[in-house]
Design a protein around this nucleic acid. Sequence first.
DNA 1: AGAAGAGAGATTTCGGTTTT
DNA 2: AAAACCGAAATCTCTCTTCT
Length: 471
Amino acid sequence: MGQPRGKDQEKDVLRGHDERNVAALNFIPVQERLPEDLLRLERMVIRTNGQPAKIVCTGVPGIGMARGSDNDLLVALINVYIDAGCPADGIITTSAYALLKLSGQGTSGKHYQALSQCLARVFNTTYHITDGWFDFHAKRYTTVSFRIIDSLTRTHREETGADITLDSRSVLRIRLSEEITKSIRNGYIKPLNLTDYQSLPTVGSRTLYRLLDMYLDEAATRGDPKPYRMAVSLMTHAQNCGVLNRRPDHVRRALDSMHEPLIKMGYLATVNYVGKGLKTTVHYTYGETTSPINQEHVALLVKHGVHRGVAEKYARNLGEKVVVVVAKFAEELKRPNKKIENPAAYLVSLLKDVDSIVAQTRSDELRKQDIQRTRKASQAKIVKAEAQQNHLFEEELHLAIQKEGPEAAVEFMLTSFKVRQLQRHGLELHEIDQVRNAVLERRVDAAQMHAILNRVLMSPEVGIRDLRALL
DNA sequence: AGAAGAGAGATTTCGGTTTT
DNA sequence: AAAACCGAAATCTCTCTTCT
């Protein structure tokens, strides 16, 4: 154990992805050994933003439930699915060899045997998640039931009784759960450094890495000051990771062994336990070098002429602020009386001046959050039917326009969240800017614009055509 | 040469005992 | 009574050896 295989580190980093629900909920417990007769497991987890969720998983007698290292298979499947271009039917075809490689395992006979058992477990475990599965499209938490794998066909060397042997030429045809694939297609994913992930020696450290990376990703998105820090209640954290034991000293011991490799590789700088027993909280400080580089941000900057190396530096250091600065840049670029000789250099100068730009947008955002919070309070009483919620959105929008003018309306409908989504659906950044201006200048009614933007998300072809006609 | 087997070493999990 | 300490059983991993 210990040092990651050095040769991999020299090479390019394997850039993978993780589905956010899977990473946050961790519905496969880390525990490697579960009692044979344990076929139903119920636990509460708290998502990174505080949303509580109940997870019930059920196994089949004789096979047991998915656990521990089966998480690696799930990560591999998600990445195979994304690499395959996210087919709408959710079917991926891959080899047993590729799956083993992707989950960072060896490829000896024993590993193939382990893989077939692992597939059997994952295939036969059902999950029921209450109020914890985030529907990225509808923007709310939902209750879902599913199996990770819907169907599974495999070619195998030979069948000797009940034992099915996979080998390096086995081809697997797997249909992933629609809940998972739908979420991926909706873009509810985050980058995952597979090279780091695979270099971790234990199941626990790998699972914790993914979970902590979710927190890190959110801290970067919020634009927290560095170094990034994070604190959670010990027992909550244990539940989130899938450590089943409820005794604080046992939990702590389990966590310690997960932390060690993460500290060694520099992902975590420090881990502190504050308090005693059940009331202990765990405080993490991330390592300096762990800032994730968001490739989308890099691409965004490169597109505007910034040199790749420079772009990576700013993407690493500024996180989500990059989007804010580029938006500002696009805005400035369009001012008729402004002459910019070298757009790339101008963008870099804005990047250097990030603090004042972000301060400005942040004060706007705070105001917006305030509005939303007061409204949420009254909203709580209302039934959460989808149609009604849509209606509410419209109403909020109208209120925003009446009270605060079009600026507030724009803030409300063009959150950075939504801007990214729109881009993913094929809108160019300058077009989004046109949208913003059209509303600001009152050329287009905010409610109307909001409806069209939603259409873009629902059915891009029609929506974008309508939108372009309007601009 | 490659597969199978044996044995040492490390991990994980869990229960009993002492301490606060 | 809760929390921390300690240690042991069970199980897995890695390496070396043996057999076909």
